[in-house]
Design a protein around this nucleic acid. Structure first.
Lengths: 223, 223
DNA sequence: GAGGTTAGTGTCAGTCGCTGACAATTGACA
DNA sequence: TGTCAATTGTCAGCGACTGACACTAACCTC
């Protein structure tokens, strides 16, 4: 993990012709897949249909994406990295919950440009809704979430100078926080307003209900 | 959903010969599957191997279980029903978090017998660990968890006389609670002590850290 | 710029999960 | 006992995915 500017789009500019071709093929597959997924549905789309749209072989698809599922989460992965970067940038004086809260809200404010380099922002919004409403993808989405939860817990523990395995508080705080995040994401996916502003507002409102208990200063207080 | 004694094992005793045969086939498939899963691994076990062990056709397997995944969660489903039943039995004066906490702890105390009617308790423990350590199953496990979360949120909202869609508190409380539960389950699956007592103790300890904020009395206080 | 190296791609054959259709069997019940 | 309905097996086929191998095109060196 080479830490660069945290909110910078991860597009290191491809150099050789080979690299550029690869990038182009991958992007084409990604866009074609999301477009098909969001119109015909995930289950209703076969890998053969995706590769036909881009005119490559099925084997090539599976060299770029380990599975049909993986391509559905390519953009989501960018967003997650974006949030983690924002969290790492939070000043040390902020309490854990406060830092996480500010990181999400800032991330939602700045993620737009980074996404647009790969796919239209509106396609990402539709993709997110599709993930939330497709059981098989929702399952994977949740597993990815808790994998990130573990990373964030370690990050928070480091901030507070705690041992993540000895002190339950980092994991508990992150678990509670993520539970709320997941709930807002779910409600957003089911709701009417599919804008970035909507998810941001929903997040802010729901986090307000988590109470000051977890936001209290931990340092000096024993477990 | 016919509500009987909440903590009673769900074994309505099969009547006809046909029913008993069905039950036997299903149980045999279940046991064979879990035994193979926990020894050779989930991915390392084919459906053909399961049906060979029981000597039925593959088609029969898929008539009892919608998928290879489903059979892995058959026992888990019992445990979940057990918890929901225990929660429904909690006296009305208990605050939401208090009720959920007591329901889990009671459930862990009484689930043993119900499980043993179907599979050895030790096989269930191994199965749980396998689920937690198999990515594909972990994903499904998490999705099942949030489906239950939604049910519990409605149950809690009913207890408190709230509208689950208007007031965020039921969903927030349940989300935070479930987040902690998930974390303890995960840690249990990765830990050394695979006993029921261990998961119960872990649950109790971790829930203590969720703080009194969510446990406060809601009635009368506006959102 | 020819020639060898290497990375990316296509083709093919095969495995595994899963499903629909149809026929054969077997318990239930008059 | 004979009919009816439920359970099961067989078979054919789809879709996701993989390993092996041959082919092509970018790259790199002399």
């Amino acid at each position: 993990m080479t830490a660069e500017q945290p909110t910078a789009p991860r597009t290191p500019a491809p150099v050789g012709l080979r690299e550029r071709k690869k990038r182009r093929t991958r992007d084409a597959l990604l866009r074609a897949a999301l477009e098909l997924f969001t119109t015909r549905g995930y289950e209703g789309t076969t890998v053969d249909e995706i590769v036909d749209a881009v005119d490559v072989s099925q084997r090539t698809f599976f060299r770029y994406f380990a599975s049909k599922e993986e391509v559905a989460f390519a953009v989501q992965q960018m967003v997650e990295r974006h949030f983690v970067a924002a969290l790492a940038e939070r000043p040390a004086h902020e309490a854990p919950l406060e830092a996480m809260r500010n990181a999400v809200l800032t991330a939602w404010d700045t993620i737009g440009e980074a996404i647009m380099e790969v796919v239209p922002i509106e396609l990402y919004l539709r993709t997110f809704q599709m993930i939330e409403s497709t059981p098989a993808l929702l399952a994977v989405h949740l597993r990815r979430s808790i994998e990130m939860e573990e990373n964030i817990a370690r990050l928070i523990a480091d901030r507070e100078g705690l041992d993540v395995d000895a002190d339950p508080r980092p994991r508990v705080a992150v678990a509670a926080f993520s539970g709320v995040m997941r709930t807002t994401g779910h409600l957003w996916g089911r709701g009417e307003d599919a804008s970035l502003e909507a998810i941001r507002a929903l997040t802010e409102a729901y986090l307000d209900h988590l109470g000051p208990a977890l936001a209290a200063d931990w340092r000096g207080a024993p477990a």
